[in-house]
Amino acid sequence: MIPGGDSIGIVIEMDDVGVVANGVTLLAPVSVTTSAGEALVVRGRNGTGKSTLLRVLAGIRTPSRGTVRVAGEAVAERDRGFRRRVSAMIGLPPMAADLTVLDHVTLVATTWLDDANEAAGLARSVIAELGLDALVERFPHELSSGQTQLFGLAVVLARPFEVLILDEPEQRLDPEHVEAVVRVLQARRDAGATLAIATHSAVLADRMADQTLSLDTAA
């Protein structure tokens, strides 16, 4: 289940947001708004601040200037409502060495959904969408780097959200699996979720972007 946001409202608002640490500019000031059911694609060379921007949006990095709002509220990663609204993968999520792929995805789903059958069904469907069916009984250390990337995506997709934040979801994936990820993300966007994706993949950007924010020009 992916509850959609307000279909006409603005979901992501970043106004003159910049990050400076120890005198070094990590993110030059940027402003952007994204509505429900849209995908914002962030592009730029290495070091231009793509991941920093996503961290600010996910509430794990405080901007040095500007304001950020998600669904009209200030970002606050410790706020339960914010956590329910936003799912993010910036780097791989923490994994438990003693759980299989299916265990991980099901456990995450069961902590978000009250109905056990619904949680199990969501876990299975996400796994199937990402083509991980054959790997459900594997432990994390038994996955290749590309499989681990897909597994990480499955973990953050196995829950309800209004905003999905992904940092280079195409990392370590072959073209066939990049296509699979595009299809999965398009389905989430079409269901009403708002996406913010940083990527170096032209395929992902071309197929997903409702608007593109280039940090090369911002920097």
Binding site: R80, V86, P93, P94, V108, V156
Partner: peptide, 15 residues
Amino acid sequence: HAASVASDLPLYGIG
């Protein structure tokens, strides 16, 4: 694992 999750992005639907 819980400590690792608690210092990272929210993953589970519980505090």
